[in-house]
C-alpha cells in the first residue's frame, strides 16, 4: 500500500493512520470514506497513513489494533480510534472530534 500522505516533513493539523489487512472490500470502503470526509472537512490539513498489517504485522501491537479496519487519530491528542468501514459519516466526524457533538 502506498502512503497517501504528502511529504513526511510537513506538519499537518490532523495525522490519521488507517490500519487494513490486505485489499479487502471493507478496507477499500473505509479508505474511500475517509478520503471523502477529509476532503470535505479538513482539506489541506490532514495526512493519511495506510498500514497493511499483512505486510507489517509487528505494527499492530503499537497502536493496540484488534479490529480491521481501524482508523487512528494520532494527532491531535488524545489518540482516538474508529473501527469499521467508516460508513456512518456523523459518527466518524464526532469520533475524530472534527465536529462537536450536537
Amino acid at each position: 500500500m502506498a502512503k497517501a500522505s504528502k511529504t513526511e516533513k510537513k506538519e499537518y493539523k490532523w495525522e490519521l493512520r488507517l490500519y487494513v489487512a490486505g485489499n479487502t472490500p471493507k478496507s477499500v470502503t473505509a479508505l474511500n470514506n475517509l478520503k471523502k470526509y477529509c476532503e470535505q472537512h479538513l482539506k489541506g490539513e490532514y495526512s493519511i497513513e495506510v498500514i497493511d498489517l499483512l505486510v507489517q504485522p509487528q505494527l499492530a501491537e503499537g497502536d493496540q489494533i484488534l479490529a480491521i479496519p481501524t482508523l487512528v487519530r494520532k494527532f491531535p491528542e488524545p489518540i482516538r480510534k474508529i473501527i469499521g468501514d467508516l460508513s456512518n459519516e456523523e459518527k466518524v466526524l464526532v469520533g475524530l472530534n472534527i465536529r462537536p457533538v450536537k
Binding site: K26, A30, L66, I68, K81, I82, V94
Partner: peptide, 28 residues
Amino acid sequence: IDHVQIDRNEIEETGEYDLSGLFIRLDH
C-alpha cells in the same frame, strides 16, 4: 506476552469490521 488493551473511551464503531488485527497480531 502480548498485552491487548481495549479502551472503550477511545474506540468508536462505525459499520462493518472484523478482528483480523487480533489474528494478525497473534499470528505474528
